[in-house]
Design a protein around this nucleic acid. Sequence first.
DNA 1: GTTTATTTTTAGGTATGACTAAAATATATT
DNA 2: AATATATTTTAGTCATACCTAAAAATAAAC
Lengths: 220, 220
Amino acid sequence: MNLTPAEENYLKGIYSLGVSRNGDISTNELAALLQTKPASVTDMLKKLAKKGMITYVKYQGVSVTTAGKKKALEITRRRKLWEVFLVEKLRLQWDELTELSDALEHVSSPLLLQRLDEYLGYPKFDPFGDPIPNEHGEMSENPRVAILDLSVEQSGKIIGVNDNSSSFLKYLDKAGIYIGAKILVLDKVDFDGSMELLIDNKRRQFISKEVAANILSMVY
Amino acid sequence: MNLTPAEENYLKGIYSLGVSRNGDISTNELAALLQTKPASVTDMLKKLAKKGMITYVKYQGVSVTTAGKKKALEITRRRKLWEVFLVEKLRLQWDELTELSDALEHVSSPLLLQRLDEYLGYPKFDPFGDPIPNEHGEMSENPRVAILDLSVEQSGKIIGVNDNSSSFLKYLDKAGIYIGAKILVLDKVDFDGSMELLIDNKRRQFISKEVAANILSMVY
DNA sequence: GTTTATTTTTAGGTATGACTAAAATATATT
DNA sequence: AATATATTTTAGTCATACCTAAAAATAAAC
Ligand SMILES: [Mn+2]
Ligand SMILES: [Mn+2]
Ligand SMILES: [Mn+2]
Ligand SMILES: [Mn+2]
């Protein structure tokens, strides 16, 4: 069954709310996530149910079917592969991705996806460190770890932050730390938990324990 | 003024029909090109006229305004840059492009376009040998030439054909001649106009005068 | 210059995907 | 258990982008 871009957006939302939860998804939750009104959500739930993508009983919430989960993973795969392309090849930044991948995730051609995957070297994680489903919907474990937990001599790639405040992001910018940067732990100070990093094989940077706890990385 | 994807498709159609013609474009022509009905075209012409993209007088045909031309060239630029990406980077073939570029041409972000252009090495021609407008809408001259007109020792890239019959395309396939192939003219026979080519620096291939007249190339 | 044929427009309708306001249902509170 | 509150659905509307059928305008034939 083929879905419109709007239907894909809703299905993706239902799936993503569902993964970290036992029970069903509520209409209001979905409306908040998708920035629409509850009445619009109800309309769409009927369509998705008719297409066999979700299980929906009036007033009782919603969850994805097996077919819906498969489709949601496919959309997610498309999105994340484009995100890898945008970051790795076009050098776009974290905050420049959302709008573009919201559009590109709906460009669906099996051949294109297969070639893009090959071209990118079959990446297993998106630029945020989240796993990319393969053609069968299978994903690797997420090795995301705060750099505070890295040992001396370990290296990794910056994939995200726990703190999105502009003061923190501004500090990171000043310190030369950005999404995608390669880091190597040169030293850890027992006394205060501070660390010395080597960024992109050239810049040395000291960071406090507080900062290190708020930067996430993928270990190589 | 911002356009919807449908409006962009119509504008592109009006512009492309207009370039190789003095007079105005007719409703029926556009309907045929866009595979819609004349009544739908009329609806859209009103919208595009209101948005200042075209000059439209009832029953009198339509032409693009200065603003419309600028927008049409921008859409064309987006499309052709994506086409270069699909062919050069993802190795898609001629006939696999249309559907994808029809969708990708509407993904419009100045930053994305700028980065894509840079990433592709600021290409001046699309995979078919047609010029790509730059950010200002300016284009290079099209150096498309039948390989029959190449001299011995000249080399170029195959960019199209004059004959789309399946018998011809089948022959080309058998002869190892495809869109994007690099060719070098090894010999030309005065007697019958036949040629010997070197394809991709490895394969030697004889072709008749008739075949050579129907293959288009870009000279390096 | 009428008549005929073709082109183009209008009128009115459908499907999608939004919305507001009101009704229905479910959940909390006392 | 009754009432109040919050959630969800329905009813009805709107814009976009299509469509068919009929009317209007233009172009071609006689
Ligand atoms: Mn989307
Ligand atoms: Mn298009
Ligand atoms: Mn109408
Ligand atoms: Mn309704």
